[in-house]
Each structure stands twice: as C-alpha cells, then as structure tokens.
Nucleic acid binder design. Structure first.
Lengths: 252, 252
DNA sequence: CGTGTGGCCTGACGTTACGGGAGGGTCAAC
DNA sequence: GTTGACCCTCCCGTAACGTCAGGCCACACG
C-alpha cells in the first residue's frame, strides 16, 4: 500500500532529492508515513505530482504551481483544459520561433542582415496583449502586478469568459444604481463596490480598500479606463469612483 | 556607435543584471568599453545574445550554451539549422503532452482512472533512445557521459549523418587492415585506432588513452557492441580491441 | 556654472530549485 | 546476524540571476 520515495522517483523520472524538496516546502507531502518515518505516497499524491511536473515543464515556479494547485474548487477536468490551453499557447510560441528561424535562414542565404529589432522581435513582444504592457509600465514591479501576472498566466479562455461576465454584471449594477438616482455613498452602491473589490481579489490580486480607492481615481483620470464606464452612461466613471471611495471609508 | 546595456536590455527583453551576469561569466562580453568603463555592445554581440536567448529558452544551461556557441568552425547557417531541429523536437514533445492530456480527459469523462505508469509515461521516457538509457546505466554520472550528453543534445540530423559516416569509415579501415593481415600492433592499425579516438573527442567526449583501452575491452565483452564489428568480419572485435590497446600503449 | 536626474559602474548578499554527501537508522534476505 | 539496498535528517554547494548600496558620469535646465 502506497509507494516509497524511490519508487515514486523512478516512476516520475525525478530524483529522491526533488521529492524531499517538495515535501520540505509543502508542495507535495506524502499522505502517510510509516512508524519508522518512511514517506508513503498515495494515489492522490501521484496525481498531484503529475500536475506539478506538468506545470514545472511549462516554466512555472514552484510557488506559482502551489497557488494553481491549491486554488479552491477546481476539478480535475478544469486542470486538464487549462493544461491543454497552455500547451497550445506554448506550441504557438515555438512555431513563431520556427518562423523567425526560417526568416533568418532566408535572410542569410540572400545575404541580407536583419535589423536589431527584427532579430529580437520574437523575444520582445512576449505577450501580444497591449494592455499587459501598459499595466507593466504603470504597476510594474509592484506586488499586486506580480500576483496578477502569475495568476492570470494559467487562465483558460473559459476562465476569461467568466471573468468578463462577472465584471459586466458589476458594471450593469453600477449603472442601474446610478440611473435610479441612488447616491454613491448609499449602502447599495457601496455593496456593488465591495463586490467589485472581491472580484479583483478572486481573479487578479488582493486589493486593499486603500488600493481600491486609488483604482477608482484612475477610472476617472485615465481616459482609457474612463471610456469603459462613460460609454455605458455619462458620468458613471465619477459615480463608480465615489462609490469605491465611500466603500473604502466604510471598510476601514 | 554601439549600444548601451540599457538599450540592449530593452531590445532583447532581458534585465541589465542579466547582461552583467553574462559578462561576468564570460558568456557575452561587450566588444568595447567607453573610457569611463561603460559597456558598448556591437552588432556581433547582439547576434550572439540572440543565440544565447534562443538556446536558453530551449532549456540549455549557460555553460552548455557557451560550448555550443564556441564550437570552432560553425557558420551562422549551421546554427539556424540546429535551432530549427531543436524547435521541431520540442514541438513534438509538447504535442505528445497534448496527446497525453487528451487521453487523460477522455479517461476522466469515461470515469476511468489511469495507472501510475500511464500517468507518468510522458515524463518517463524522456528520450526515446534506448541506447541513451543503457549508456546512463553504465557510465551514468561520469564526466565523459555528462559531456557527451550535453554535446549531443544539440546535434542535428545532419550532424548525426556525418558522425555515422565518419564512424563507418573507421570501421571499414579496421576491416581492411584486418583482412589484409596487418597485425593489430602495426602502426597502420594503431593509426586507425587513433583516428577512432579523435572521432570520439570531436563528437562525444574527451577520451584519454586509458579510457580508450577500457572501451576496447567492452567491444569484446559486450555482445551488443561486439555484434557491430563481428557482423563486418568475424574476429574484428578482438582485432579492434588489440589495436586500441596497442595505440594506448604507444600514446602513453 | 552649479545642479539635478537618469543611466551606468562594481561589489555583495539574497533566492529558487534543487545536487550531493555525511552520518546514521531500517528491513528483507541469505 | 550481518549485509546490502533503501530510507531518514541535516547541511553545504551551485546556477542564474534579483535586489539593493554606494558612487561615478553625462547632459539638460535655470
């Protein structure tokens, strides 16, 4: 019953030391121990190890893997879909690199030399998402940004759809309250603001009330964000900011 | 003229510290320095950096990259072909993983649970080459084995063809001398043995005369290797061993 | 002509994900 | 009942950087 470290190591193609390490940092602790202190790995442990190795191979850090695996309420199927999506992306990236190599070969045979930009473009625009670059410039290096980047890295298309739906719901509720003439510091508006904050915490990063206030300011100051609300209703951006502020005051 | 660290870092999407590090370890030292000591990267430096990042992305260690890049007599085209080959392999591996995920999804929806072996098989047979596993068992952990593994990791199909051809030539020459009645300790036989040793050094690992002798012994003792020679001419394995021994004596 | 301000320099210590060995217990087998 | 394979827990080492700290350098601006 159960597998010893050596057996698991041989099975999974890792060293015993690696398993010890995963135990040390709490990433994978064997379900049982013999009275002599020997590690005994159970079937679910193997399952978890398989996932660990998978995400590791795709370049995730062990800490990231821990948060991915310990996300509450994710069934095996979600993991598989996520893995599928990640593989697809990674293969796409490698195919881009193939294209770049092909281009370089062509240039080489033609005797043309590439510009520095051309040479690095496959490395440069790591994510084809312009928003990500903007975010980097604004919040680059902050904890929140890092946390967000790490978490979103593993989201599937379906995750994103759910996020969009949730976000849309919040905006609609804000708009409804706004048009109904509910004051921004009314509990009803503040409750929506709080849901917005929770939404961020669930999907992106832990957003303190203080940070949430700053975010509200930006919704007004930055036309790119403001447009998101203004196109729903004129004056909504300011309303949302006020609601976030009011909610932050209430929370602190 | 030339690029500063910051410019290169921005261009290539790496940090300044990374470039400092590469300079420290001698992997990429800027072609010039200003009188104030500022690094100035030239066009060839960018070229080299691009290759470094390429091989790095594919999982090579910086030490391995250094040996790959500093291999004498490799033109840009060879690198490009090699990169193409590596990408192809890597994509193939990822596609295997996709297949494994698909299988797991199927099993999941069917309610079947996979055996431990099935779960890890995509990680297990890391290299589909049975010879590599045998080699690991015999020489696992030795410097020569490590060196060989590192170097061969980057060989293209064309490299392997050339290796095979070279090796075949040596065997034919051994066979010719053997059948012509040339004694194994004759200079002509010993010269072929020396060429064999150089062949190993060029493509696999630095083979000392002492190691070469051991290798000769194995050609006789291990039927798997012996067959290689015996199928060319009966008694050739022993002849080759004797030639390797004689040459080793001469060399020491 | 001083004075920021941003970029660059060299240490030097911190971190991640293990590798590898010392020193010592455990256990099935001969 | 001892031997060899396997396991344990420290503990130090390594690779590839991250992250300051303390101090030049260079050029724009008043």
């Amino acid at each position: 019953m159960g597998y010893s470290v050596g057996q698991v190591a041989a099975l999974a193609g890792v060293t015993v030391r690696t398993l010890h390490h995963y135990d040390e940092i709490g990433l994978l602790s064997p379900g049982e121990r013999t009275r002599a202190g020997y590690r005994r790995y159970t079937e679910p442990d193997l399952d978890r190890l398989q996932r660990i190795l998978f995400y590791r191979e795709l370049g995730f850090s062990l800490e990231e893997i821990a948060t991915i695996l310990d996300e509450p309420g994710v069934d095996p199927m979600t993991h598989l879909r996520r893995q599928h999506e990640l593989l697809r992306r990674r293969i796409g990236r490698l195919q881009e690199m193939v294209a770049a190599v092909d281009k370089a070969m062509e240039a080489q045979t033609m005797g043309i030399s590439l510009t520095p930009q051309e040479r690095f473009e496959v490395f440069g625009d790591f994510d084809p998402d312009e928003h990500a670059q903007e975010a980097e410039e604004r919040w680059g290096g902050t904890d929140a940004f890092e946390q967000s980047r790490r978490r979103t890295a593993a989201y599937t298309k379906e995750d994103w759809l759910r996020i969009k739906e949730e976000a849309g719901e919040v905006v609609r509720d804000f708009a409804a309250a706004f048009e109904a003439g509910v004051p921004a510091d009314d509990v009803r508006a503040m409750d929506v603001a709080e849901r917005h904050r929770e939404h961020l915490g669930r999907w992106f990063y832990d957003c303190s009330p203080e940070m949430h206030k700053g975010l509200g300011d930006m919704f007004v100051a930055d036309p790119r964000f403001a447009a998101n609300y203004e196109q729903v209703a004129e004056g909504l951006a300011v309303y949302v900011r006020d609601a976030l502020h009011a909610n932050a005051e209430r929370r602190s």
